[in-house]
Computed example of a mutant assay.
Amino acid sequence: MSLNLEDVLVAPVVSEKSYAGIAERRYTFKVHPDAHKTHVRQAVEKLFDVSVERVNIVKVQPKPKRRGMIRGTRPGWKKAVVQLREGDTIEIFEGAQI
């Protein structure tokens, strides 16, 4: 399966832990389930015009949830933590510093 680079990155991850990594040039994205490290690297470099140093991929496991007698499962997803080279930043994250 061939992915377009625009389809690889789904959304930025908004959490305290992901925003704490911005000081170390680490940015976290929710990515397409079929994407791998090379896809993520190429997509970030093309869309944000930065140089990527390292990419780590994590599969977030689905969690069982319950509300009263109703049982269900939260869906799992895939996230990528992207380390940029010295001096590079992604501007969309800069406005929401904690």
Results as ranks from 00 to 15, higher is better:
E91K: 07
K59D: 14
E86G: 01
V58T: 15
K79E: 04
Q61S: 12
I92C: 01
T73R: 15
T73W: 13
E94F: 05
Q97A: 03
V82L: 06
G68Q: 12
I57C: 12
E94G: 10
Q83M: 09
F93L: 03
G87F: 01
K63C: 14
G87C: 02
R66D: 00
L84Q: 04
K63R: 12
F93T: 09
R66P: 00
G76W: 12
K79F: 02
K78E: 12
P62L: 06
Q97Y: 05
Q83E: 13
I98V: 05
I90Y: 01
E86M: 06
E91L: 04
K78C: 11
I92A: 02
W77T: 03
W77L: 05
L84D: 09
L84T: 06
M69W: 11
G87E: 10
R66G: 00
V81R: 00
Q83V: 14
I98Q: 05
I57V: 15
T73V: 13
W77D: 09
K79P: 02
I57R: 08
R74D: 05
T89F: 13
P64N: 12
K65H: 04
Q61K: 08
E86P: 01
K78H: 15
A96Y: 12
W77P: 03
E94D: 13
G95C: 03
E94C: 05
K78F: 13
G95T: 02
V55G: 06
I98E: 03
D88C: 11
I90E: 00
I70A: 05
E91T: 08
Q61L: 10
E86A: 10
R85K: 15
V82M: 00
I98H: 07
V55Y: 02
F93N: 03
Q61V: 09
P64W: 06
N56G: 02
G68P: 07
G76E: 13
G95V: 05
R71L: 04
G68H: 14
V55P: 01
K78P: 12
P62D: 09
T89R: 08
P64M: 14
N56K: 05
G72I: 08
M69P: 01
P64V: 15
V82S: 06
I70S: 07
K59N: 15
R71E: 12
I98R: 11
R67Y: 04
G95Y: 02
G95P: 04
L84K: 03
R85V: 13
R67T: 04
A96N: 13
A80D: 00
V81F: 00
V81I: 11
V81C: 00
V60W: 01
G72C: 08
P75D: 13
Q61P: 06
V58H: 08
P64R: 14
P75N: 11
I98N: 06
V82I: 08
P64G: 10
K65Y: 02
R74T: 08
I92W: 06
V60P: 02
P62I: 01
Q97E: 07
K79Q: 06
R85S: 14
A80T: 02
E91F: 07
Q61Y: 06
Q83N: 13
R85T: 15
P64S: 13
I70R: 08
Q61A: 13
R74C: 03
K65D: 04
V81A: 00
I90T: 02
V58K: 08
V81P: 00
I57S: 09
P75S: 15
E86H: 10
L84E: 04
I90D: 00
